[in-house]
Amino acid sequence: MAEGMEKLTEVPTEFIREGTAFINKCTKPDQKEYLRVIRAVGIGFVMMGLVGYGVKLIHIPIRYLIV
């Protein structure tokens, strides 16, 4: 039984150990880079959203026209 438990916990612990080791080796974005990326992507995402929402708004009159 104890052996079975050991095997059961072995996979996740191995995974977590390897994962943390990998993350520690990773290059992480510094604050400047992070702020730049988040601003660029955020603005892009919101812009796309607004355009898409605009298309959704076109639907409202169309729906009443075709029904």
């Binding site: 995402f45 919101v46 796309m48 959203g49 607004l50 355009v51 898409g52 929402y53 298309v55 959704k56 409202i60």
Partner: peptide, 16 residues
């Protein structure tokens, strides 16, 4: 991406 972005806009600033 476009569907998700517009859905997010719809859910936050949707004026309907």
């Amino acid at each position: 991406t476009i569907a998700i972005a517009s859905n997010f806009a719809y859910n936050t600033i949707g004026i309907q």
